[in-house]
Computed example of a mutant assay.
Amino acid sequence: MRTTWLILLIMVLAGGAMYYIATRPKVAAPYDTIALHDTPDSIRSKLRVFAAYDPTDITYRDSAWFQQDSIPLKEIALDTIAVSFDKNYKSVTFYLDYDHAWFYDVEVNKPGQDVSYQISFAVNRLNDSMRVSGIINDPLHDQLRLSGPMMKMYSSFILSYSRKLPPVTDSTQKSTAPDSMEPGKPATPPSRVITVLKK
């Protein structure tokens, strides 16, 4: 009799496990990964990475990064060689912060939320400044290589993305068309503007 009850209990447990596995939500694709490579340990130990999702402007003050409404940016912990993080976004901007002295921002746009990217950065010293190189790899499509100097940080500043700001509707403003601009001014406005609040 005990054997019958034991077999029945095992069948019930097996059926419950099969039902759980069958009804569990399926992940559309692996999580994104972000990694540092070819970066000296002395630099790696002072490097932090933050993420903001489709920001219009970002504020830095008191050694911290904030989005609109003073919401702190999400930090991606770099305590492993490659970190996995949520891939359910279409647009994200990463901020590499070296010792609160230099920063680099890079925007990543995806064709859809179910696409996973492999992102890697290398940070190295170049004379009196810092330089970043990296690869944003979409395993199913293509990869984007990037390289550039890090920007000097101030005690407090605002980083605004011009193309995401609403257009000027003031009729007293001068036209920004190239033929009406003053000599020596660029034909297109900068993609981002840094407003220094405190040096």
Rank of each mutant, 00 (worst) to 15 (best):
E107V: 11
K74W: 08
D79E: 13
N124Y: 12
R125N: 11
T93F: 07
K26H: 12
M153R: 03
M151D: 10
D86P: 02
D41L: 12
V108A: 06
D69M: 15
T80K: 00
R48V: 12
W102L: 12
S156E: 14
F103C: 09
D57N: 09
L144V: 14
Q173E: 00
K46R: 13
D114L: 11
I58P: 00
D54L: 03
L8P: 03
S133W: 10
A101G: 08
S160H: 12
D41S: 10
T93V: 15
L159E: 02
E75R: 00
M181G: 01
S70R: 13
P166Y: 09
Y154C: 09
G15L: 01
K174T: 04
Q143N: 07
A187T: 05
Y31D: 15
D114S: 07
Y154F: 15
M181P: 00
L78V: 14
P189Y: 08
H100Q: 10
R131L: 10
V12Q: 05
D79I: 09
F103M: 13
V108I: 15
S129P: 15
I136L: 06
T80W: 00
I71E: 03
G184T: 01
K198V: 07
S156W: 09
K174P: 11
W102G: 07
I81F: 09
Y95A: 11
L144T: 11
F94D: 02
S116A: 13
N124S: 14
Y161D: 01
D41W: 00
P189C: 11
A29I: 14
L36V: 04
R145E: 01
H100E: 08
L197N: 11
L126F: 05
W5N: 05
K74V: 15
E107A: 09
I135E: 04
P183S: 00
R131C: 05
E75M: 02
R125V: 15
T172K: 14
A77G: 04
G148A: 10
T188N: 10
E75Y: 00
K152F: 07
W5D: 02
Y60I: 08
M130V: 05
L197S: 07
L13W: 01
M151I: 14
T176L: 14
M130K: 05
V27R: 11
V12M: 10
Q113F: 13
R131P: 04
M11F: 10
A101Y: 07
Y154M: 08
A177H: 03
P190F: 06
L6A: 13
L146R: 12
V196H: 01
D142F: 03
K152P: 05
V115I: 14
T56G: 11
Y60T: 04
P30I: 12
W5K: 04
V92E: 04
Y20H: 07
F94M: 00
I81N: 07
S180T: 02
L165G: 06
D32M: 07
M153L: 11
Q67Y: 06
T195N: 06
V132Q: 08
S120E: 11
R44A: 05
N124A: 13
A101K: 13
T80A: 00
M18E: 12
T169M: 14
Q143K: 08
P167M: 12
A82G: 08
M11E: 02
R163Y: 13
P111L: 02
D79Q: 03
V83L: 07
L6D: 06
L146K: 08
